[in-house]
Amino acid sequence: MRVFPVYAPKLIVKHARIFLTGVIWVKDLGRLEFEKGRFLLPRKSLPKVKQAILELNELIEAQN
Rank of each mutant, 00 (worst) to 15 (best):
M1H: 14
M1S: 14
R2T: 14
R2Q: 15
V3G: 06
V3L: 02
V3E: 14
V3K: 14
V3C: 15
V3N: 12
F4W: 02
F4H: 02
P5I: 14
P5H: 15
P5K: 14
P5D: 15
P5C: 15
V6H: 09
V6F: 14
V6R: 08
V6S: 05
V6G: 04
A8S: 10
A8H: 13
A8K: 07
A8F: 11
A8N: 08
A8I: 13
P9A: 07
P9T: 04
P9Q: 04
P9D: 02
P9Y: 02
K10G: 14
K10T: 14
K10S: 13
K10I: 12
L11Y: 05
L11W: 08
L11S: 11
I12A: 01
I12V: 04
I12C: 02
I12F: 02
V13H: 02
V13R: 02
V13D: 00
K14H: 11
K14Y: 11
K14Q: 14
K14P: 05
K14V: 09
K14I: 11
K14M: 14
H15W: 07
H15R: 03
H15E: 04
H15A: 04
H15P: 00
H15G: 01
H15L: 04
A16S: 08
A16H: 00
R17E: 09
R17S: 11
R17I: 10
I18Q: 14
I18F: 14
I18E: 14
I18P: 02
I18G: 06
F19I: 14
F19W: 15
F19A: 14
F19S: 11
F19E: 15
F19C: 10
L20Y: 12
L20A: 10
L20H: 09
L20S: 09
L20Q: 10
T21P: 01
T21W: 09
T21L: 06
G22Q: 02
G22H: 02
G22Y: 03
V23T: 12
V23E: 15
V23Q: 14
V23F: 05
V23W: 09
I24M: 06
I24N: 00
I24A: 04
I24E: 00
I24Q: 00
W25D: 05
W25F: 08
W25Q: 06
V26P: 00
V26L: 03
V26T: 03
V26R: 00
V26Q: 01
K27T: 15
K27H: 15
K27V: 15
K27A: 14
D28F: 13
D28G: 15
D28P: 14
D28V: 05
D28T: 14
L29I: 10
L29E: 00
L29K: 03
G30F: 04
G30S: 01
G30C: 03
G30Y: 03
R31T: 05
R31C: 13
R31W: 04
L32C: 02
L32N: 02
E33A: 14
E33P: 08
F34L: 05
F34K: 00
E35P: 01
E35G: 07
K36R: 10
K36F: 11
K36N: 12
G37D: 03
G37C: 09
G37I: 05
G37R: 05
R38M: 11
R38F: 11
F39Y: 04
F39Q: 02
L40G: 04
L41A: 09
L41N: 07
L41Y: 10
L41D: 05
P42S: 10
P42I: 06
P42E: 05
R43Y: 06
R43C: 05
R43I: 05
R43M: 05
K44M: 07
K44Y: 11
K44S: 07
K44P: 05
K44Q: 08
K44R: 13
K44I: 06
S45Q: 09
L46H: 10
L46P: 13
L46S: 13
L46R: 15
P47L: 13
P47E: 05
P47K: 15
P47C: 09
P47N: 12
P47G: 10
K48A: 07
K48G: 06
K48W: 10
K48E: 06
K48S: 07
V49G: 02
V49W: 03
V49L: 13
V49C: 05
V49Q: 07
K50M: 08
K50Y: 08
K50F: 08
K50T: 07
K50R: 12
Q51R: 14
A52W: 03
A52E: 02
A52C: 07
I53A: 06
I53V: 10
I53G: 00
I53C: 06
I53F: 03
L54W: 11
L54F: 11
L54D: 08
L54M: 10
L54S: 09
L54Q: 06
E55N: 07
E55A: 08
E55W: 06
L56G: 02
L56V: 03
L56D: 00
N57C: 03
N57T: 03
N57R: 03
E58V: 12
E58R: 13
E58L: 14
E58G: 12
E58M: 10
E58S: 13
E58C: 11
E58Q: 13
L59Q: 06
L59D: 03
L59N: 04
L59E: 09
L59V: 09
L59R: 05
I60Y: 07
I60C: 05
I60Q: 05
E61F: 09
E61P: 03
A62K: 09
A62M: 12
Q63L: 11
Q63I: 10
Q63V: 11
Q63S: 11
Q63T: 12
N64D: 13
N64G: 10
N64S: 09
N64H: 12
